[in-house]
Design a binder for these strands. Sequence first.
DNA 1: CAGCATCCAATTAGATACTG
DNA 2: CAGTATCTAATTGGATGCTG
Lengths: 138, 138
Amino acid sequence: MGTTSDLRGYGGANAYLAACPSRTILDVLANKWTMLVIGALGDGPLRFGELRRRLDGITQKMLTQTLRALERDGLVSRTVYPTIPPRVDYAPTELGRNVSGLLDSIRIWSEDNINTVLASRYAYDERAAMEVPPVTAG
Amino acid sequence: MGTTSDLRGYGGANAYLAACPSRTILDVLANKWTMLVIGALGDGPLRFGELRRRLDGITQKMLTQTLRALERDGLVSRTVYPTIPPRVDYAPTELGRNVSGLLDSIRIWSEDNINTVLASRYAYDERAAMEVPPVTAG
DNA sequence: CAGCATCCAATTAGATACTG
DNA sequence: CAGTATCTAATTGGATGCTG
């Protein structure tokens, strides 16, 4: 790094420091909807409605919010066609495609390992239920 | 898959369906503290206090909560030494090490690309400030 | 169609006090 | 040291109604 031009480049980012800006983008990425939106978007472009249909359970508010944050951070581009009715396309930017593989891998891992996790949860909860049950009679 | 023994294995997990259990583990992983804790843990084992010191800004409550969730899901093991004062060690399980690389990659990407993201944010906010400023006089 | 604005319910997170 | 318990503050998220 060293000679970052005029952009006040932040050198030696370290997410383990609370004040490090990298935490702010980590916050955006480390989010359920971000993971799913980026994955659903694929190579895009995709319209708002189509995106919504692919994301079971997302509300219009959350989708808008997530897309805005991604657009602001330069991970997703937004194209408005001034037609009636309006049409808005979303597509990953180069930066977005850059990170989408990483995010996808987390989602896919979740899908691949959910059974192991469920088994662990079950065992954990059983054990917890066994010891020191809430103070009742007996 | 097919012949999953007695464990009621969930086949064909799909995080895009709201009811799919894989969403529940995705929720645990897609979390700022999970990312940082797993990364800080490394190969472990690490004591609670040491872990806390490595995670700038985390409260005792959030660290406990995060570690409990990870333990429950089988990603982290917890070993209690019945000494005085007590000592508790945390270490990633095999499953945990399995996913830690993926989580680390997100954190590292955040550190590597924060400057690009900051520049994008700056430009976005500048543009937003330009158009339709809140209705004041003039 | 693709949103924004608003209100309200629920969840989450911080601070603080206490314990084996 | 490594927590638990509790109270409160702040944030998040859902539902609803409206608009170009």
